[in-house]
Write a protein that binds this DNA or RNA. Structure first.
Length: 877
RNA sequence: GGGCGAUUAACUCAGUGGCAGAGUGCUACCUUCACACGGUAGAAGUCAGAGGUUCAAAUCCUCUAUCGCCCA
C-alpha cells in the first residue's frame, strides 16, 4: 500500500517557499556543470545594483527568464544562469557621500582610502540584501558562479580591456567639453543626461560697438555665460550683419573686446541671428571655438559656481544666482533689450536631476566608431535578434548617431583608471600593474584620480563573469549566452556596449537573443517611483499573495513590447488559482489508488481519453508560446486548462467512476495531475514542488523531472467531440434550469432526442450527467413530445427537453426562447448574406465556405427547434 | 521637430483578414462529502473617429483626435 500524504485545506505559501527555496540551494540544483550532457542553454543575469532593493522591475526581469531556464532545464538542456551584482559607481558614491554629510564630513575630509574602506564596508553589509531577495523569487540562478563587478578577477578584466583599447588607440584622453553634474561632482556620458522641457526665458543683450551708439544684439537662454564669451557669431550670408564682418564688440560687464565671426552653423532664425560664443560652456560654441581658434574662458567651475574669471562682482556666486545678477546689471546699463518666454530642453543628471553644466576638462574617451560598426553588423546579420523585433530599429537609430563615449568619472568608488602620469616629463603610462617609475625618465608617477563609468565594466559582464581573460571551461561551454532578458531603458547603456565589447574581445556575440520586457507601471500606467508613492513592493506582494502568485501575475501580463500595468486584484486572482490547484491536488490525493497501477489505454473511459488528448494539445501550445516568449499566452493556456478543463470538467466528471473504484481512472487522474505540475512548474515553482512531493514515488525535485511529451496516440478527436456533446447537454440543462428558476432540489427528468444513437453516446456516463446537470432520470426518444411540463433546448444539434414536476411558467419560458431565437436569426442572417454573395463563393477559401455552411445548418436546426417549441407554447397559452 | 506605442465589456488586457475573447468586478441562485481563495447561470461592446483596400477588416492602408514613452 502506498503512503498517502494529504494536504491542508488551504494553501499557505510561506512555509512552503521557505522550505523549497532552502532545499534547492542546499541541494545545488541550480549549479551548472560544464560536463553535463545535453545542449547548453546559458544566460547571465542583468546585475542589479549591489546596494539596491528588489523592485517590481527586477521581479519581472528575473521571473520571465526563470520561466525559460526552468523550462529548458526540464527539457534536458544543460542550463547555466549566472547571477551577480554591479558596483553602481555613482549611486554608491552618492550614498556614501550622504552618509558622510550626515556626520558633518565630506570625502575630501576623510580622504580616498578611508572613503573606499567605508564604501566596501557598506557593500559587504548591505550588498547581500538584493541577492537574498532574489533567492526568494525562486530564480534558478547558479550562485556558485556569483560575481561582483569589482571583485578581483573582474577588476583585472576591466583593467586589461582598458589597457588593450588604449594600445590600439581606441581609448584616448582629450581636453573636451563634457557634461558635468555640479551636485554629483562628476562628468557624465551623453546618455546619462535626461532632457526635459523647461519653461525658461530668452534674454536679448546688446553688445556695443566701441565708439558708436550701435551694437549687436544677441539672444541667450543662459546670460551668466556671457561673462565667458570670446566672440559673437553670425551667419556669413545674413545681410543684416554684413556690415559688421571683421569688427569687434565690447563684452559688457567684462569690458573685453571680442570679435564678430561668421559661421554657417549659426541659425539665422534663432533670436536676432547673432549669437554669443562661449567655448568653455556650450557644446556648439565649443566646436566653433576650436574651429575659429577662440580662447576658452572658464567662468563656471565644476560645482556650478562662478570662477575668478567671471570677475570680482560675480566670483563665488552660484550659476543661477549669478544669472539674476547679470540680468540686473545689464538692465542697469540699458543693455537688456528684451526678454521673451522660451521653452527649451535642458539636460539634467539622470541620478540626481540637477541641471547639468557643460564643463571643459581632461577626460578619457572610447573611440566608438570601430566598435559600433561591428555591433551594427552582427544585428544586421541577425546574429543577435531583438524580441520584439521593433527594438532593432531603435538600436540602429542610436548606433548610427553614436559619438565617442566619455568613460572617466570624478568619483572614487569604481575601477580606478590604470593611467599613470610622470610628474617629471608628463609622460603617460597605461599598464596593468602599477609601475615603479616613469619608463622614459624614471620620474615619479601619479595614478589618474578618476574611475571608470560603471557601464564600462558592465559591458564585459557576459564574458568577464566566466573568468575572462583566462580561457576557462565556462567560457568554452557557455559563451555566447543564448538569451538576455532586460528592459529597454538600458539598451544603449548596456546591451549595445556588451555587443561592442563582446565582438571586440571574444570575437563573438555575447548573446543570441535579447528579450526586451516592458516597464512595470502602476494601475494608472504611471512609472512607479518613490516620490509618487505608487510603488508596489514585490516583497510585500510575496508576503500577501505568495511568490507563485506574483510570478504568475507578471507572466500573465508580459506581452512582448508592452508595458505592464500591475494590479493587486490580479494578484489576488492568481493566489486563488494557486489555492485551486492545491485543492484539486488535495482531491486527487484523497482518491489515489491503494497500489500503483498502469492504466490500459484500451480501457479508458471517455473523460480520461479526453483529458489526455487535451493535455497533449495544451502542452504543444505551451511549447509554442514559450518558444516565442509569449508569456501571457502560455500563462493563459495553463491557467485555463487547469481550472476550466481539469478541475471544472474532468474531476467533476470522473467522480462517479472514482466512487466505483475504477483503477484506470484513478491512475489517469494521478498521472494527469503529475504532468500538470510539471507544466506549471516553471511558472509556479514552489507550490508545484510542494504538491509533487506529496505524490507517491516522485524524485528529488520537480525541476529534475522531464518536460512532458506525449505520444500522438493520445490525440483523440472522437473523445473530444463526444465530450463536447455531453458538455453541451449538461450546460444546456443548467441554463434552462437557471433561466426558469427551477430550484436545485426539484427533481427533473432529462429527455434527449436521437433515440438509440444518443443512448449509445451518453448512456455510459449517465451517472456523471445526472450529477453535473442535476437531473433524475434520462430518457432517449426519437422526438420530443409536446408537453406543458417540457422545457426545450438544443445541445449542439440535438434537441433536449427538461421534464419538470410543476407546469411551466409560460411567459418566462416564452421570453427565454424568444431571446435565443432572436440571436439565432441574427446569426443566420449574417451567414446568409455571405453565402448568397457570389463573390464570396468564388473567392473565399473552400474551408471557410464549408465552415460557414456547417454553421448555417446548425443554426437553422436550432431555429426550427426554437420556433417549434414557441409554437407549442403559443398554442397552449 | 523626429520616432515608437496605445485607444476592444465597468476595470486590467489578449486577439496578424473568416462566429468579438479572458481575468477581475457586477447580477441571480447554490455552504452538494477538493476548494466560498468555491460552484452554476447571466448581463455587459458603435473594437477612439473618418475615409479607403478586400468577397470579408478589431486586424491591412491613409488621415484625425486623445494618451504615454524615447530621441533631438
Amino acid at each position: 500500500m502506498r503512503e498517502k500524504k494529504l494536504l491542508d485545506k488551504a494553501y499557505d505559501p510561506k512555509p512552503v517557499e521557505a522550505r523549497w527555496s532552502k532545499f534547492w540551494l542546499d541541494e545545488k540544483l541550480f549549479v551548472a556543470d560544464v560536463h553535463s550532457p545535453g545542449p547548453k542553454f546559458s544566460m547571465v543575469l542583468p546585475p542589479p545594483n549591489v546596494t539596491g532593493v528588489l523592485h517590481m522591475g527586477h521581479a519581472l526581469c528575473f521571473t520571465l527568464p526563470d520561466i525559460i531556464v526552468r523550462w529548458k532545464k526540464m527539457q534536458g538542456y544543460n542550463t547555466m544562469w549566472l547571477p551577480g551584482t554591479d558596483h553602481a559607481s555613482i549611486a554608491v558614491h552618492n550614498v556614501i557621500e550622504q552618509q558622510l554629510a550626515e556626520k558633518g564630513l565630506s570625502r575630501e575630509k576623510v580622504g580616498r582610502e578611508e572613503f573606499l574602506r567605508i564604501a566596501w564596508d557598506w557593500k559587504n553589509k548591505c550588498g547581500g540584501l538584493i541577492t537574498e531577495q532574489l533567492k526568494r523569487l525562486g530564480c534558478a540562478l547558479d550562485w556558485s558562479r556569483e560575481r561582483f563587478t569589482m571583485d578581483e578577477g573582474f577588476s583585472r578584466a576591466v583593467k586589461y580591456v582598458f589597457v588593450q583599447l588604449y594600445r590600439e588607440g581606441l581609448i584616448y584622453r582629450d581636453y573636451y567639453l563634457v557634461n558635468r553634474c555640479p551636485r554629483c561632482q562628476t562628468v557624465l556620458s551623453d546618455i546619462e543626461i535626461e532632457h526635459k522641457e523647461v519653461q525658461g526665458k530668452l534674454w536679448y543683450i546688446k553688445y556695443p560697438i566701441p565708439g558708436t551708439d550701435d551694437g549687436v544684439v544677441v539672444a541667450t537662454t543662459r546670460p551668466e555665460t556671457m561673462l565667458g564669451d570670446t566672440a559673437v557669431a553670425v551667419h556669413p550670408e545674413d545681410e543684416r550683419y554684413l556690415k559688421y564682418h571683421g569688427q569687434k564688440v565690447l563684452l559688457p560687464l567684462q569690458n573685453r573686446l571680442i570679435p564678430i565671426i561668421t559661421d554657417e552653423r549659426v541659425e539665422k532664425d534663432f533670436g536676432t541671428g547673432a549669437v554669443k560664443v562661449t567655448p568653455a560652456h556650450d557644446p556648439v560654441d565649443f566646436e566653433l571655438g576650436r574651429k575659429h581658434n577662440l580662447e576658452q574662458v572658464i567662468v563656471i567651475d565644476g560645482s556650478g559656481r562662478m570662477t575668478e574669471a567671471a570677475g570680482p562682482e560675480f566670483q563665488g556666486l552660484d550659476r543661477f544666482v549669478c544669472r539674476q545678477k547679470v540680468v540686473e546689471k545689464l538692465q542697469e546699463l540699458g543693455l537688456l533689450v528684451k526678454v521673451e518666454n522660451y521653452t527649451h530642453a535642458v539636460g539634467h543628471c539622470y541620478r540626481c536631476k540637477t541641471v547639468i553644466e557643460p564643463h571643459l576638462s581632461w577626460q578619457w574617451f572610447v573611440k566608438i566608431e570601430p566598435l559600433a560598426r561591428e555591433a551594427i553588423r552582427v544585428v544586421e546579420e541577425k546574429k543577435i535578434v531583438f524580441i520584439p523585433e521593433n527594438w532593432t530599429k531603435t538600436y540602429f537609430d542610436w548606433m548610427y548617431r553614436i559619438h565617442d563615449w566619455c568613460i572617466s568619472r570624478q568619483l572614487w568608488w569604481g575601477h580606478r583608471i590604470p593611467a599613470y602620469y610622470c610628474q617629471n616629463c608628463q609622460h603617460i603610462m597605461v599598464v596593468m600593474e602599477e609601475p615603479a617609475a616613469c619608463e622614459k625618465c624614471g620620474g615619479s608617477l601619479v595614478q589618474d584620480e578618476d574611475v571608470l563609468d560603471t557601464w564600462f565594466s558592465s559591458a564585459l559582464w557576459p564574458f568577464a563573469t566566466m573568468g575572462w581573460p583566462e580561457q576557462t571551461e565556462d567560457l568554452k561551454v557557455f559563451y555566447p549566452t543564448d538569451l538576455l532578458a532586460t528592459g529597454f531603458d538600458i539598451i544603449f547603456f548596456w546591451v549595445a556596449r556588451m555587443i561592442m565589447m563582446g565582438m571586440k574581445f571574444m570575437k563573438d556575440v555575447p548573446f543570441r537573443q535579447v528579450f526586451i520586457n516592458g516597464l512595470v507601471r502602476d494601475m494608472k500606467k504611471r512609472k512607479m517611483s518613490k516620490s509618487e508613492g505608487n510603488i508596489i513592493d514585490p516583497l510585500e506582494m510575496i508576503k500577501k499573495y505568495g511568490t507563485d502568485a506574483l510570478r504568475f501575475t507578471l507572466s500573465s501580463l508580459a506581452v512582448p513590447g508592452m508595458d505592464i500595468a500591475l494590479s493587486e486584484e490580479r494578484m489576488a486572482g492568481y493566489r486563488a488559482f494557486a489555492n485551486k490547484i492545491w485543492n484539486a491536488s488535495r482531491f486527487v490525493l484523497m482518491n489515489l489508488s491503494e497500489e500503483p497501477f498502469e492504466p490500459d489505454p484500451a480501457q479508458l473511459t471517455l473523460p480520461n481519453r479526453w483529458i489526455r488528448s487535451r493535455l497533449l494539445r495544451i502542452t504543444r501550445q505551451l511549447n509554442s508560446a514559450l518558444e516565442q516568449y509569449k508569456f501571457y499566452e502560455a500563462s493563459e493556456i495553463i491557467y485555463h486548462f487547469i481550472w476550466h478543463e481539469f478541475c471544472d470538467w474532468y474531476i467533476e466528471f470522473i467522480k462517479p467512476e472514482l466512487r466505483a473504484g475504477n483503477k484506470h481512472t484513478m491512475a489517469v487522474m494521478e498521472d494527469t495531475l503529475e504532468k500538470i505540475l510539471r507544466l506549471l512548474h516553471p511558472f509556479m515553482p514552489y507550490i508545484t514542488e510542494e504538491i509533487w512531493h506529496h505524490l507517491p514515488g516522485t524524485g528529488r525535485s520537480l525541476l529534475e523531472a522531464s518536460w512532458p511529451e506525449f505520444p500522438d496516440s493520445w490525440l483523440d478527436e472522437e473523445a473530444e467531440n463526444t465530450m463536447k456533446f455531453l458538455q453541451e447537454i449538461i450546460s444546456e440543462v443548467r441554463s434552462i434550469r437557471a433561466e426558469n428558476k427551477i430550484p436545485v432540489r426539484e427533481q427533473v427528468n432529462l429527455w434527449v432526442e436521437g433515440g438509440e444513437t444518443s443512448r449509445k453516446v451518453a448512456g455510459p456516463y449517465e451517472a456523471a450527467i445526472r450529477q453535473l446537470a442535476g437531473v433524475d432520470r434520462i430518457e432517449y426518444v426519437e422526438e420530443l413530445p409536446a408537453d406543458k411540463k417540457l422545457l426545450k433546448g438544443v445541445a449542439g444539434t440535438t434537441k433536449i427537453g427538461l421534464l419538470v414536476a410543476a407546469p411551466v411558467n409560460l411567459e418566462q419560458e416564452k421570453e427565454r426562447l424568444e431571446k435565443e431565437l432572436r440571436k439565432v436569426r441574427e446569426d443566420i442572417a449574417k451567414l446568409e448574406v455571405r453565402l448568397n454573395n457570389p463573390d464570396f463563393l468564388a473567392k473565399a477559401p473552400a474551408a471557410v465556405i464549408e465552415d460557414h455552411q456547417k454553421r448555417l445548418a446548425e443554426l437553422k436546426l436550432k431555429q426550427a427547434t426554437l420556433e417549434k417549441s414557441l409554437g407549442e407554447l403559443n398554442e397552449r397559452s
